[in-house]
Design a binder for these strands. Structure first.
Lengths: 193, 193
DNA sequence: CGTCTATTTGAATGTACTCAAAAGCGGTGG
DNA sequence: CCACCGCTTTTGAGTACATTCAAATAGACG
């Protein structure tokens, strides 16, 4: 079952008791998502925290000109969701779209809070996740303010080689904050074409 | 005493018991920092989490060309530290400098972990802090990939009006990922000069 | 008043974007 | 098997945004 991949994911961080495992089983529910479908839309409240069992997602926003900007990708064993909306209960500014046929496990805010209260270990596990995610956003800000488009792209393909063969260059360019046309000229220049 | 400002800061988020307040008193120590002094240097492990009671700090990194890039500012009631280094124990890539004569409260990693174990409430409080910080970095990434320099600056002065009169434009430009010269031309154009 | 630093100005340059069009690349159906 | 469709990637010319470097100006402080 899909839930097993989440349990082993948790146990890579901290071993769980049988009771905690049962609590995880009860708290998450599995769901399939077709390619192209949205699991979150701008204006909706993000009521679910999502763990990707299989497939690939992107979280993006629209700017005033209607252009999309990818804030995050998520593949197997990644979490995705609008944390701001999830915790505040306010409408999200983001869309989350499946870029491949996908399977996810989702938990409601109330169930996640219950998990934290009943089993403090999860409080700690999720705190560490959030810290790690924070660090990766910090690195991205640093990159954006200190690197050229070419440096950002070469760093991306080194850091996320798994993404490169699954995600179109249009989406990668949007993630890196450049136009697809310019990404194309960068790729032409690079040796490892 | 300075610790009172930290206690009331915590209590703005969640009320504390007398026991928890005592634990906070024992866990943090106060320290004055002169203007221009570093409380963290590249290569050192960040062993302390820092709460700013009074004053102003910046956290920055040096790039290959020796240029500084500000990742974060912190004034009264903000936290500052290199989370990656603090949790991993690996050397930091950052410098943290006092831009004003400052007073801080600092806690060692071991004491913070003890606080989390002994009083789970802090686990939750710090998880929420980290989530909020994550959200603000997300917003910054979105801005960097979708906005012009002018938009980033006008958003900055609206979002952080307190910073504008305390922090030089050189430092603000570095935070926003543009040159001070270009920031100057932006400022000239803007109405509210 | 002189010194030190921060800010502004301007010219030349470079990085990245826009827009339009062409080329490549599966997949589908005739 | 080929032709056509939709989509992604590439190419190119012109332009805009932002940087570099050098120098002038303005402010703060002793």
């Amino acid at each position: 079952m899909h839930i097993e991949s989440l349990i082993s994911y948790f146990e890579n961080h901290l071993p769980l008791t049988e009771e905690e495992i049962q609590a995880v089983r009860k708290s998450f529910s599995a769901r399939k998502v077709k390619r192209g479908r949205l699991i979150l839309q701008e204006g909706d409240v993000c009521r679910l925290n999502t763990f990707v069992v299989e497939g690939c997602f992107r979280m993006y926003m629209l700017d005033f000109d209607g252009k999309e900007h990818n804030l995050q990708f998520a593949i197997e064993n990644w979490w995705i969701g609008d944390i701001a909306s999830f915790h505040s209960g306010e409408p999200s500014r983001f869309f989350i779209e499946a870029m491949e046929p996908s399977t996810v496990l989702q938990i409601k805010k109330a169930d996640q809070l219950r998990l934290f209260v009943d089993y403090p270990k999860f409080n700690r596990i999720f705190r560490v996740f959030t810290e790690n995610e924070l660090v990766s956003y910090q690195r991205r800000v640093i990159q954006n303010i200190s690197s050229t488009a070419e440096e950002r792209y070469t760093d991306f393909i080194n850091r996320y080689p798994d993404f490169v063969n699954r995600i179109s260059n249009v989406q990668i360019a949007s993630f890196l904050g450049m136009t697809p046309e310019y990404l194309s000229t960068i790729r032409k220049k690079l040796p490892s074409s």
